[in-house]
Design a protein around this nucleic acid. Structure first.
Length: 902
RNA sequence: GGGCGCUUAGCUCAGCGGUUAGAGCGUUCGGUUUACACCCGAAAGGUCGAAGGUUCAAAUCCUUCAGUGCCCACCA
């Protein structure tokens, strides 16, 4: 039966079918009761609001490659999917949507709003999970988790309560970062720092009861309305006499004390600092030291509050302008100088964050950080690449307490209640009915929710059933590996490490691989909001998911960022197409072979037949087959080694090289005639070995290109119970141990063909015309190899005949090419020879060789080198030099001959 | 202010102590070879940012410098 096979690979026609069947058959469902070493990995949960972006694509590609590879290597494998409720992001998305409908979310009330978010999540929140299914990720969908599900919420409460009981979670008034757009506090990590050119305003504060005034410098004049002191250094001769007196805050005419405090840097500004405890971290501390009032002059949304007097209601930056104007008018503005300083920016909205004192829930980090640092130091958690370890240590050793509460509605509500009468605090797993201290039944739950990262920090164990001792938890925790971008090392990885160790007593993952970021051509981090992101879904459709995966993998060298381009994607697409066409060739010729009365597909390619390879013809495995099996084995070993150390690019490159270079360009080209050989035994052996190699090669490629390989693998006859190539063995070594291979003999043949082709091209000989050639080597075994493989050489070098000779080749009437071990010659009319060009070519080659030889002579002649270098290097160098000398001699002779003839 | 990277072929990047420095793309030349022009064959192209140093041996390790990118940081 002749097959209809598309001329080009059309991923769109193949991918959806397999993606669907993999999910439907629950192909990747983990079973903790099954034997085998464990490979478990949890997904970095993407936002429910999200759709797949290029960063996920990279994450997921790497995760899926390693998962599929381990699965095929016999591991009991779990890849656990799920999503994050993403507090601020999600809330902002829904708030914006409501606003578009003219609804102010606050009007819905807390419950109404949260209900809307859930509703929205159900309707359009599944995008990313759907996309993950479409791109065929081999995760266990029966174990999908969501950070805000009742199941995981229970874990969040458990953890919060325990930390509170241990005294690690506390509530306090402290300096926090306030985002006037998000309307919530942020943790330090959510605040970015940006250097900006600003000013230093020098403002005169009159000293009470004197004509003197004190000049202070500030970058934020509007905060002066909340000043409650002026500080100078106690030892500062300029101001010492003023300590204990007071000054008048201009514009609001408040009398404030002048205090002495060591915190003041005499060198900076004027050496006198206005103290605004409600709006500056240093001032807050100073305020506590000196018992100063905290006057908050701003509202939640960044306007001036009632405390700002006549400025109330103004936007904070408007107020700044106005205040500066007014000071100028009053003659109280001493001067303005330029000043560049770092300001805090909200990670999401890019608005300037306002430092503000407020009451929040915090988590003490030092006691949690120490065991995590130790775990990384001891190698219980292995961080790759190495330099990220240092970053981790740096941050962890200087860690500060974590602001946990957020003034949002979407998220895990803080499990704390206050009694109306005495404000007793009750922290509990379930809502209490009365205050255990005073018995009051008027309880109100804390309005705030937890930072999103609090629940993600529990992800590796919360998803596996902790605190219960579930079979999943027992079998799959600690997880084997975590793969994520280095940009969330602190946000997420560090917190998982701390919380995992604290609560389970074990590290949450044994290794962390932090991959590169995908950047735009201009080097920026790709971002949807900036419009610089590539849409992987579109690209997957355009080039095929396999091509996309392969492309990313081939560029994913550890520690370096990726710049994706159409060229690279096209290259990967071409590779997929190449494989498709190679298969097309196999199946088309197989049809011919069967129709011509040859053995059946089953007889040539059945699973048992494939397993029995390599097959011999006339008592020995054909050289070409032995060669390709060896190339395959070596490629597989390289891939295994590379993947063990996350060198995806190396693995991908190796496979590419093997499939395209070895398998297509040489192996298939070489065996073409054998496949339809009149000698049916030779043909059968060729076919059998071919299918065995093909099967192995598909397996090798499968983790990288799951769809294409699944499709092609199913074209081969399979066992009745074989469901997917994904569940097959990655590869078995087909070489018998101790067997001496002749595979490198084929390398000589390749060299000879290359030299012959080179002559043809350089001499511009008619590419279609078969030409006679001669081959000489002083080694008998090499001549034998050529004799035995004459047909193939003639075919691939387009020769009419190949004369193998023990005698030196004549230089006249043709062109000779030499390697150390052999010479080839093609006869042609001398006018084809551009003697000048040929001489130049020879000279260049001679020069290169001479340089290389001289450098080796120098080294080998150096006694210190001989005594210190490893013997392997010395003998290798000697051998190479000997070969190079032989070749050099030949090239020189040839140059002399040409010169003489010309 | 600290810390971490990067600088290698026209472009994008591998290689990170050892034997004439590699890939993809691009370029040049030649090809309707019964799988593939998303292809085949051949070739050109690099004193590995600069200067010192360590070593028998340096693109690879160290120092300095010059560009360039990123992360962390409560000096008004």
């Amino acid at each position: 039966m002749a097959r209809e096979i598309a001329k080009a690979y059309e991923p769109q026609r193949i991918e959806p079918r397999w993606a669907e069947s993999w999910v439907k058959d629950e192909l990747f469902k983990a079973d903790p009761s099954k034997p085998g070493p464990v490979f478990s990995i949890v997904i970095p949960p993407p936002n429910v609001t999200g759709s797949l972006h290029i960063g996920h694509m990279l994450d997921h590609t790497e995760i899926d490659i390693l998962t599929r590879w381990h699965r095929m290597c016999g591991y009991n494998t779990l890849y656990l999917p799920g999503t994050d409720h993403a507090g601020i992001s999600t809330q902002r998305v829904v708030v914006r949507q409501l606003a578009e409908q003219g609804i102010n979310y606050r009007d819905l009330g807390r419950e109404g709003f949260v209900r809307r978010v859930w509703q929205w999540k159900e309707e359009s929140g599944g995008t990313i999970q759907r996309q993950m299914r479409e791109i065929g990720e081999s995760c266990d969908w029966t174990r999908e988790k969501f950070t805000l599900s009742p199941e995981l919420s229970r874990v969040v409460r458990e953890v919060f309560v325990r930390l509170y009981e241990e005294g690690l979670i506390y509530r306090d008034k402290r300096m926090t970062n306030w985002c006037p757009v998000c309307l919530t506090v942020l943790s330090d990590l959510e605040v970015l720092h940006e250097e900006r050119a600003g000013h230093l305003w020098h403002i005169k504060y009159p000293v009470a009861g004197s004509k003197e005034s004190l000049v202070v410098a500030t970058t934020r004049p509007e905060t002066m309305l909340g000043d409650t002191a002026i500080a100078v250094h106690p030892e500062d001769e300029r101001y010492k006499h003023l300590i204990g007196r007071s000054a008048i805050v201009p514009l609001v005419n408040r009398e404030i004390p002048i205090i002495g405090d060591e915190m003041v840097d005499r060198e900076f500004g004027t050496g006198a600092v206005k103290i605004t405890p409600a709006h500056d971290p240093n001032d807050f501390e100073a305020g506590r030291r000196h018992n100063l009032a905290e006057i908050d002059v701003m509202t939640d949304d960044g306007h001036m509050s009632a405390a700002a007097g006549t400025y109330a209601g103004l936007d904070r930056f408007e107020a700044r302008k106005k205040i500066v104007e007014d000071l100028k008018t009053l003659g109280l503005l001493d001067k303005i100088t330029d000043h560049t300083h770092a300001i805090g920016i909200c990670e999401r909205t890019r608005t300037i964050v306002e430092p503000r004192a407020s009451v929040q829930w915090f988590c003490k980090m030092k006691p949690l950080a120490e065991p995590a640092i130790a775990a990384v130091e001891k190698g219980e958690i292995h961080i790759v690449p190495d330099n990220r370890r240092e970053e981790f240590f740096n941050w962890m050793r200087n860690i500060r307490d974590w602001t946990l509460s957020r003034q949002l509605w979407w998220g895990h509500r803080i499990p704390a209640w206050y009694c109306a009468e005495h404000h007793h605090v009750i922290v509990a797993r379930e809502a209490p009915t009365k205050c255990p201290e005073c018995g009051s039944e008027h309880l109100e739950q804390d309005e705030d929710v937890l930072d999103t990262w609090f629940s993600s920090g529990l992800w590796p164990f919360s998803t596996l059933g902790w605190p219960d001792k579930t079979p999943d938890f027992e079998r799959y925790y600690p997880t084997t590996l975590l793969i994520t971008g280095y940009d969330i090392l602190f946000f997420w990885v560090a917190r998982m490490a701390m919380l995992g160790i604290h609560f389970t007593g074990k590290v949450p993952f044994r290794a962390v691989y932090l991959h590169s970021l995908v950047r735009t051509a201009s080097g920026e981090k790709m971002s949807k909001s900036k419009g610089t992101g590539l849409d992987p879904v579109k690209l997957n459709q355009q080039y095929g998911t396999d091509a996309m995966r392969f492309c990313l993998a081939s560029m994913a060298a550890p520690g370096t960022d990726i710049v994706l381009s159409d060229d690279r994607l096209a290259g990967a697409r071409n590779f997929a197409n190449k494989i498709w066409n190679a298969s097309r060739f196999l199946f088309m010729n197989l049809d011919k072979f069967e129709e011509g009365g040859g053995a059946s597909f089953e007889q040539l390619a059945g699973p048992d037949v494939r397993a029995g390879a390599p097959y011999a013809y006339k008592d020995s495995v054909p050289l070409i087959d032995e060669w390709i099996f060896e190339r395959l084995t070596s490629a597989r070993e390289t891939v295994n080694t590379a993947l063990r150390s996350y060198r995806f690019h190396e693995a991908a490159q190796t496979i590419y090289q093997f499939f395209w270079g070895d398998f297509c360009d040489w192996y298939i080209e070489w065996i073409k005639p054998d496949l339809l050989n009149a000698d049916s035994e030779r043909a059968e052996v060729a076919w059998k070995n071919l299918f065995a190699v093909f099967d192995d090669a598909l397996r090798l490629l499968h983790p990288f290109m799951p769809f294409l390989t699944e499709e092609l693998w199913h074209q081969l006859p399979q066992r009745a119970d074989a469901k997917s190539i994904a569940l097959e063995e990655f590869g078995v070594n087909r070489q018998k141990s101790g067997e001496v291979t002749r595979a490198n003999e084929f390398a000589l043949i390749q060299d000879a063909i290359a030299e012959l082709r080179n002559i043809r091209a350089e001499m511009k000989l008619d590419p279609k015309k078969k030409i006679a050639a001669e081959f000489h080597s002083s080694y008998g075994y090499i001549r034998d190899t050529m004799e035995r493989n004459r047909d193939g050489i003639q075919r691939l070098a387009i020769l009419s005949e190949l004369k193998v000779s023990a005698a030196k080749l004549s230089e006249t009437g043709g062109t000779v090419r030499s390697t150390a071990r052999f010479d080839v010659r093609i006869a042609h009319s001398t006018d084809a020879v551009d003697a000048h060009a040929e001489k130049a070519r020879l000279r260049k080659e001679i020069e290169g060789l001479e340089k290389s030889i001289t450098s080796k002579e120098n080294q080998l002649g150096n006694p210190t080198f001989r005594s210190k270098a490893p013997p392997k290097i010395i003998s290798g160098m000697e051998a190479t030099m000997a070969e190079q000398r032989l070749e050099l001699e030949k090239l020189r002779a040839r140059l002399r001959d040409i010169s003489r003839l010309a």
